[in-house]
């Protein structure tokens, strides 16, 4: 075997390995989607069924028994709302930290990130009680606010790094041009970092969408998100795999479709975002 052939073989085996790992990781999702179209008998049959006649009964049943649209809407409102609120706070804050750094900036960032190390149960009592006292249990508003707060440190960290790449002179030039701080942020910083801002926002939306702890603890029928819906199916009917799969598929579908649509812009934004 020549060196060239050896190299090609190595390359091929790495690619094959990558495909195997990738498919292994995707398999549970694939199986979930497949199971969603089975009957409960088919779902637990041994050997597992790969080919069968698909049925939509599970989906119809879910819509009959619960209000999928309402939960989906709650998910959309809380994840987009929480992200929007967090971005409104984080963009000016990250600007201040990136463009007017002090010797404490690094410590402040570290401190912000350290709050992510606190397990959520640690603040369960106080937050639950506060929500209870203010009548915010099972309200979308409370979730929006909590989502914004729990994602703020990560958003800050990422935006700070994006903003730091903007040459300081460009901002100084805009100040010389008479731009107010608001104009500086909206007309210069945000357009220059729009790829980074979009990517950060998308990440935050996904994190909110998948957030389980607070949505399950704080909501029930009114403000319940899709995650809470899935959870409600898993406890009393834990053994009904087909229905559980169907509701999980429904919970994942919107965000996956959304991700599919924005991926092109996302990648483009991130590569074009680099200022030079």
């Amino acid at each position: 075997m020549t060196d060239r052939q050896k190299q090609r073989l190595l390359h091929r085996s790495i690619v094959t390995l990558a495909w195997i790992i990738g498919l292994l990781m995707f398999f549970p999702i694939f199986w979930m989607i497949l199971t969603a179209f089975k009957t409960e008998q088919q779902a637990i049959s041994t050997p597992p069924l790969l080919f069968f006649e698909p049925s939509f009964d599970n989906f119809l049943l879910i819509q009959e028994r619960t209000d999928y649209t309402k939960h989906a809407l709650n998910s959309i409102i809380t994840s987009f709302g929480g992200t929007a609120l967090a971005m409104i706070i984080a963009i000016p804050a990250a600007c201040a930290m990136a463009f007017k750094p002090s010797h404490l900036t690094r410590d402040v960032l570290l401190w912000m990130l350290s709050t992510k190390m606190l397990p959520a149960v640690g603040v369960l009592m106080p937050i639950y009680l506060i929500c209870q006292k203010f009548g915010l249990l099972d309200s979308r508003f409370a979730l929006v606010f909590i989502y914004a707060m729990i994602n703020l440190p990560i958003i800050m960290m990422i935006l700070f790094n994006y903003f730091r790449d903007i040459p300081k002179e460009i901002l100084e030039a805009s100040r010389m041009d008479g731009a107010s701080t608001f104009a500086e942020i909206t007309q210069v910083v945000m357009p220059l970092a729009r790829g980074g801002i979009a990517a950060t926002a998308f990440l935050s939306i996904v994190l909110c969408w998948n957030e389980a702890f607070w949505s399950i603890v704080l909501t029930s029928s009114d403000a319940g998100t899709l995650v809470a819906l899935v959870a409600s199916f898993s406890s009393p009917e834990g053994l009904f795999w087909a229905k559980l799969s169907a509701v999980s598929t429904l919970a994942c579908a919107p965000i996956m479709i959304f991700g599919w649509f924005v991926q092109k812009q996302l990648v483009q934004g991130m590569t074009f975002g680099a200022v030079k």
């Binding site: 040459p167 002179e169 460009i170 100084e172």
Partner: peptide, 9 residues
Amino acid sequence: FQTYALYPH
């Protein structure tokens, strides 16, 4: 400015 500092966008 020495680096021109034009608005790239």
